Computed example of a mutant assay.
Amino acid sequence: MLDSGKLVSVGDTNLFVSEAGNPRGRSIVLLHGGLQSRLAFIPIAKHLAEDYRLIAIDTRGHGRSGIGTAALTYRQLQDDFAVVLTALGLQKFGIIGHSDGGIVALRLAASHAVQPEFVIAVGAHWMLPEDDTARQIYQTINLEKWREMFGNQIAIYNAENPEPDFGKLFNAATHMWLSCDEDAYPGASVKNIQCPLLVVHGDDDMLVSRQQAFELTEQVSGARLLNLPFAKHTLLEDMPKCVFLFLQNFMKYVTA
């Protein structure tokens, strides 16, 4: 699943796009988290595939996508995905974004660069204050620690990426996570989101606090909050069957 696909040009590089699921079903765009790839969605995709057409995009520098020459910023990723979605000619689609993918999904919906039917943001920051625990983690994490924790993830990256240089990607990603200018987190612009929004939060998420998830929900008119007890930042991979039931109910409700 999500193994075959095609490359779509976004100017200075090409992004890998893979499809799975029901070609006659409603389209859902899957945007993965930082230093991961579309493959992180496989556990939840197995549940979505029967009813939905799934379109998974590898972020620039991740998976099978080239890193290009542009700086890695949330604005750049927003622009990249807008180009891909336009090139695919999608008329109606929702977005499920995890972590960095959720942040970019919020930016896309807030900018009205695309018009998704809905956005499901999973484990996503909408802003990152100076005293946020995640910022402290990002400031102290290094490449050696990441290799110790996610060695298998890096091995998959090295096997898939056309020009693998995980050290370069890691440095670019951590710089993006710590940025706080207009090219970074969506911030107050999330108030511009007009499509239905489901904010999904794991109660044991060490990166995204309950307060973050609650405040994001409060910023967007009509947004819903799903806070799952005993769930971590990786809840889509850890407990896909449980999460799927809630996502399915939300999607059926907002697209009825």
Rank of each mutant, 00 (worst) to 15 (best):
L2C: 05
S9F: 05
G11N: 10
T13L: 07
T13N: 06
N14T: 07
L15D: 06
L15Q: 01
F16E: 07
S18C: 13
S18Q: 14
S18L: 01
E19M: 05
A20Q: 05
A20P: 01
R24T: 03
R26W: 02
I28W: 06
L35P: 04
L35Y: 04
A40E: 15
L48S: 03
A49C: 04
E50N: 14
E50W: 04
Y52R: 11
L54E: 12
I55K: 09
I57C: 09
D58M: 09
T59K: 03
T59S: 15
H62A: 11
S65W: 00
G66D: 04
G66E: 01
I67F: 12
I67A: 14
A70R: 12
A70M: 03
L72Q: 09
T73N: 06
Y74M: 12
R75N: 02
L77N: 03
D79M: 12
D80P: 02
F81M: 08
A82Y: 01
V84C: 08
L85F: 04
L85D: 08
A87V: 06
L88W: 06
G89N: 09
F93W: 09
I96N: 05
D100P: 08
D100M: 15
G101K: 00
G101V: 13
G101R: 03
G102F: 02
G102P: 09
R107E: 00
S111L: 04
H112C: 06
Q115K: 14
P116Q: 01
V119M: 03
G123L: 11
G123S: 13
H125C: 05
L128N: 07
E130L: 12
D132L: 00
T133Y: 03
I141F: 04
L143H: 12
E144I: 13
W146E: 11
W146M: 01
E148L: 12
E148D: 14
M149F: 11
F150E: 15
G151R: 06
N152L: 13
Q153M: 09
I154L: 14
A155F: 01
A155E: 13
Y157W: 08
E163Y: 09
G167V: 00
G167N: 13
K168R: 15
K168S: 03
F170A: 03
F170M: 02
A172S: 15
T174G: 00
H175E: 14
H175K: 14
M176E: 13
W177T: 04
W177D: 08
L178F: 02
L178S: 09
L178G: 10
S179N: 13
D183E: 12
A184Q: 10
Y185C: 11
P186L: 09
P186G: 05
S189G: 00
S189E: 15
K191M: 11
N192K: 15
Q194M: 12
C195K: 00
P196C: 02
V199M: 13
V200G: 02
H201P: 05
H201A: 09
G202E: 11
D203Q: 14
D203Y: 00
D205S: 07
S209D: 03
S209K: 10
R210G: 00
Q212A: 12
A213M: 05
T217F: 00
V220H: 10
V220C: 12
S221Y: 10
G222H: 03
R224A: 11
L225K: 06
L228Q: 08
F230K: 13
K232E: 14
T234S: 15
L235T: 08
L235S: 08
K241A: 15
V243K: 02
F244G: 08
L245W: 05
L247Y: 06
V254P: 12
V254I: 14
